[in-house]
């Protein structure tokens, strides 16, 4: 069961610029689901995901995850369930090379070195990063490769929920197809994915549910492509 409920949720950047006001919303379902957030830049998609990942907590109102207030969740328990991919890979990767970086996520896990290594290699193969890139630091990779590496660094840890902030930005069509495959596999493996994107076609193809985020509102969208004509996305 992965359900987020927002109750009278309000948020303002630095306590001044209002993004959301009195938002009441229920996202998610009992089954694994792929949910997309679309909307113009600055509409609050990243904020919404950060709140859902318990990284931003200076909001007013209540956000419940699995019927329990987010603020009441213990850090350790919550991080076992929910992980997030940040918008830019350079903010998420910081070890000397990609493999070490993926292993860094498993740093405090009770696994042997071999098990950790195996997991890391498997996940790097899953995201489709060529083997000769594994020993390179992230700033030597192209934008798309760095994004894949960042995704691997998150995926290596098993979690029920994945929050991905713009996983489709700056990648080519081939990688986009791979991403589609990864999304579907993850869903089949029982994970719920919430992601934000500007890529309407990708959103349309992959997601079970789409939400528009604009003008402080988050509302379900029936027709994604229509949104394109409105100029929302």
């Amino acid at each position: 069961m992965v359900i987020y409920s927002f109750k009278n949720f309000s948020y303002a950047y630095y306590g001044v610029t209002k993004v959301f006001e009195n938002l009441n919303l229920r996202i998610g379902s009992n089954n694994p689901q792929i949910v997309a957030f679309v909307g113009p830049s600055g509409s609050g998609k990243t904020t919404l995901l950060s709140v859902m990942a318990k990284l931003v907590e200076d909001y007013s109102g209540e956000v419940l995850f699995e019927e329990k207030n987010l603020k009441d969740w213990k850090e350790l328990e919550f991080r076992k369930k929910v992980l997030m991919l940040l918008q830019s890979p350079e903010k998420q990767l910081f070890e000397e090379n990609i493999l070490a970086d993926v292993l860094y996520t498993l740093k405090y896990d009770n696994l042997t070195v071999e098990e950790k290594m195996l997991k890391a290699q498997r996940v790097l193969e899953l995201v489709g990063l060529p083997k000769d890139r594994w020993d390179k630091p992230y700033y030597r990779l192209s934008g798309g490769e760095a994004r894949k590496a960042a995704l691997a660094a998150v995926l290596v840890k098993d979690s029920e929920v994945l929050l991905l902030d713009e996983p489709t930005s700056g990648i080519d069509s081939e990688t986009r197809q791979e991403l589609y495959r990864i999304f579907k596999n993850l869903k089949r493996a029982g994970k719920s994915i919430f992601f934000s994107s500007h890529d309407v076609y990708f959103v349309k193809a992959v997601s079970d549910e789409v939400f528009f985020v604009d003008n402080g509102l988050v509302k379900p969208a029936e027709n994604v492509e229509k949104a394109r004509y409105w100029g929302v996305v």
């Binding site: 990942a53 991919l85 940040l86 998420q92 860094y104 996520t105 998150v154 840890k157």
Partner: peptide
């Protein structure tokens, strides 16, 4: 933040 996002507690 990024460490927390990756589940490193």
């Amino acid at each position: 933040k990024s460490k927390r996002a990756r589940g490193i507690v």
